[in-house]
Amino acid sequence: MTERKIRVLVAKPGLDGHDRGAKVVARALRDAGMEVIYTGLRQTPEMIAEAALQEDVDVVGLSILSGAHMALAPRVLELLKGNGQENVRVFLGGIIPDEDLPRLKALGIAGVYGPGAPTEQIVAEIRAAVSGATE
């Protein structure tokens, strides 16, 4: 029996143009031994939820720089839940104003990271969230 790998979908919803940050995080997660499914730019929440389902991921990481996180993140959560994937932990990366944090937490976002967040912290918090979810 193979050791259970953490599977993470890294997605970039919205219309903002580059995915450098998302790729850095994807590589860091790979280097931490996780399997990262990378889906590329301009994903709709529907596409993200569908990919999360097909790939049976433990975690979805959303990279949002456009400022549309208050629309996109809740929509992804809602779609995951609608698909029966309420156990999937959703993390958010990008430029997120502090005043949005309480609402995002309340909605069920597991972690929020700004552009300078150390990847070690992201890795550790994903690991902790996943082991908490499967217990």
Binding site: K5, A26, Y38, T39
Partner: peptide, 11 residues
Amino acid sequence: FTGGAVLGDRV
């Protein structure tokens, strides 16, 4: 080395 992977074909 790490057993991890970036799976990018869906792009």
